[in-house]
C-alpha cells in the first residue's frame, strides 16, 4: 500500500485555515496550499504524462487553477489533499494531448524510454531510473492503471470510475503493465 492511502494524519489546523481562507478568496492562503501539495501533484502528473516534464507542468497548473475555481465545492468531507489529488487525476485523464501521445507511444515504446531518460536524466537514479523509465514507456492505459494503483493507492473500482474502463479491464491493464515493466527491467539487466 502506498503512503497516499496510508497517510491518515488529520489535516493540520494550519492547512484547514489555509483552505478556509482560500475559500474566502485569499490568494496567499491558496499559494500555501500549492506549496504544500505541488510535489505530490507534480509527481502524479509527471508519471501519468510518461515523464514529459513540460506537459506535467501544464497539468499541475491546470489542476490548481481548477481547484481554485471549484474550491467552494470542497466541504471537508475528505482531506484537501485527497480532493486535490483526485481533481488532478481527472485533469490529466481529460487532457487530449495525452491521448494523442498514447498513439505515438504504443508504436514507439522503446524509443520513448530513451527519450524520457535523456529528457529527465537528473530525476532518475540507479534502479529507480530504470523503473521510472520502464513506467514512462508503458502504453498509456497500462501506465495510468499502474501509476494510480501501485503508486498512488487507488482501488480498481476507483480507477474504473475515473477512467471509464471496466474494473476487469483495470485489473488486466495492471497485470499487463507489471509484466511489461518486468520485461523491460530484465532486458536492461542483460545489457
Amino acid at each position: 500500500m502506498t503512503s497516499w492511502q496510508h497517510d491518515k494524519k488529520e489535516l493540520s489546523a494550519t492547512e484547514t485555515r489555509w483552505v478556509e481562507k482560500a475559500q474566502a478568496g485569499d490568494r496567499l492562503a491558496f499559494e500555501q496550499l500549492y506549496r504544500s501539495h505541488c510535489g505530490r501533484i507534480y509527481g502524479l502528473c509527471w508519471r501519468m504524462c510518461g515523464g514529459d516534464k513540460g506537459l506535467a507542468e501544464d497539468m499541475v497548473q491546470e489542476a490548481f487553477v481548477r481547484a481554485w475555481n471549484k474550491l467552494h465545492l470542497f466541504r471537508g468531507d475528505s482531506k484537501f489533499g485527497t480532493w486535490l489529488h483526485r481533481l488532478a487525476v481527472n485533469v490529466v485523464l481529460s487532457d487530449r494531448r495525452i491521448r494523442v501521445k498514447r498513439l505515438q507511444r504504443e508504436r514507439e515504446m522503446v524509443d520513448d524510454i530513451e527519450r524520457t531518460l535523456v529528457g529527465d536524466r537528473d530525476v532518475f537514479a540507479g534502479l529507480r531510473k530504470d523503473l521510472e523509465a520502464a513506467i514512462a514507456g508503458l502504453p498509456e492505459r497500462a501506465r495510468t492503471v499502474l501509476v494510480l494503483y501501485d503508486i498512488e493507492g487507488y482501488q480498481h473500482n476507483e480507477i474504473a470510475e475515473m477512467t471509464g474502463m471496466a474494473v476487469g479491464s483495470s485489473k488486466a491493464q495492471l497485470h499487463r503493465a507489471r509484466k511489461l515493466v518486468r520485461e523491460v527491467l530484465k532486458d536492461s539487466e542483460n545489457i
Binding site: 499559494e31 500549492y34 505541488c38 499541475v60 497548473q61 521510472e132 503508486i151 498512488e152
Partner: peptide, 17 residues
C-alpha cells in the same frame, strides 16, 4: 521505494497566479 512527491524543476506558482 519510488518517491510519491517530486518537486518540479521550476516554480509553477507564478503561472498559476
Amino acid at each position: 521505494e519510488l518517491p510519491r512527491s517530486i518537486r518540479p524543476q521550476r516554480d509553477l506558482w507564478p503561472g498559476i497566479s
